[in-house]
Computed example of a mutant assay.
Amino acid sequence: MNDIADHGVRFGRIAAMLPVKDMTKAYDFYANVLGFKKIFENGNPVGFMILKRDQGEVHLTLQPNHKAAHFNVAHLMVDNVDALHAVCQQYGLRIIKSLQDKDYGLRAFVFEDPDGNRIDVGQPI
């Protein structure tokens, strides 16, 4: 089988799609706690939203019956993992895996957003 690059396919951005039960509550969290800015929304009421901060982008999709997965649904690389960990603690977010240096070269932790979506956060050591 040929490599897909041999067929002229080039990948662009890819972003995590996070299901949320309440779009307003989710937006408030991502904007006011994590500092994301809304760059697109669709629907009335809003059923889809794109948020961006620096190089990070998340897509929120309204799913009123969402049941959170018991695994990480997104991985976020940051340049100050300790500061983000402190913010998560300050806002009372559930920390799933504590902040620690990993043997694979990252300082990392996992938290849950208000909808239970688990986000793995890391910074190269």
Rank of each mutant, 00 (worst) to 15 (best):
P124E: 03
D115P: 05
V20K: 00
N117V: 00
N44W: 08
Q100F: 09
D103W: 04
Q55S: 08
Y27P: 06
M77S: 08
L99G: 12
K97Q: 11
F71S: 10
G105S: 06
I119A: 03
V73K: 02
P124I: 11
A15R: 14
Q89A: 12
A15L: 05
N117R: 01
L93P: 07
L84T: 10
L106A: 10
G56L: 08
R107G: 08
H66R: 14
G92N: 00
M23E: 03
K37T: 15
I96E: 14
G8M: 06
K25H: 12
L51W: 09
A16E: 09
G122S: 04
V73S: 00
D113R: 11
N42H: 15
V81L: 11
N42I: 14
P45D: 03
R13E: 08
T24P: 02
G92T: 00
Q123T: 06
L99E: 12
V87D: 00
I125C: 08
K21G: 01
N80T: 10
I39L: 10
D113A: 14
F71Y: 13
M49H: 08
G12Y: 06
K97S: 09
F109Q: 08
L34C: 07
L18Q: 06
G116I: 02
Y91H: 15
Y104A: 09
Q55L: 04
I125F: 09
M1Y: 13
G43C: 02
D115L: 03
M23G: 03
K52C: 14
G105Q: 05
P124M: 10
H59S: 11
G122Q: 03
P45C: 02
K21T: 01
L62Q: 01
G116D: 05
L106H: 10
I50M: 13
L18N: 04
V58N: 06
K38P: 13
F48H: 03
G47M: 05
N117G: 00
D113C: 10
V58R: 02
L51D: 07
Q123C: 04
A26I: 04
F40C: 12
I95L: 10
G35L: 00
E41V: 13
V81A: 10
E112G: 09
F109A: 08
V78H: 02
E112S: 14
K102A: 11
H70A: 13
A5S: 12
P124N: 04
C88A: 15
H66N: 08
D79T: 04
G35F: 00
H59K: 05
D54C: 02
A5I: 15
A26S: 02
Q55T: 15
E41Q: 13
A69P: 06
A83G: 12
F109H: 13
G56N: 11
R10I: 15
G56P: 07
N44S: 15
V110S: 01
N65V: 14
G92V: 01
R10A: 12
R94N: 03
Q63L: 14
R118S: 03
A108S: 10
K25G: 07
D82S: 14
D120S: 07
K52I: 15
I96D: 12
I50T: 14
L34G: 05
L106V: 14
V46Q: 10
F40N: 09
M23T: 05
F48Q: 02
L60N: 03
G47K: 07
V73E: 01
H85D: 05
G8W: 04
D115T: 07
L84M: 13
D3W: 04
D115M: 05
L99C: 12
R94S: 04
A74G: 04
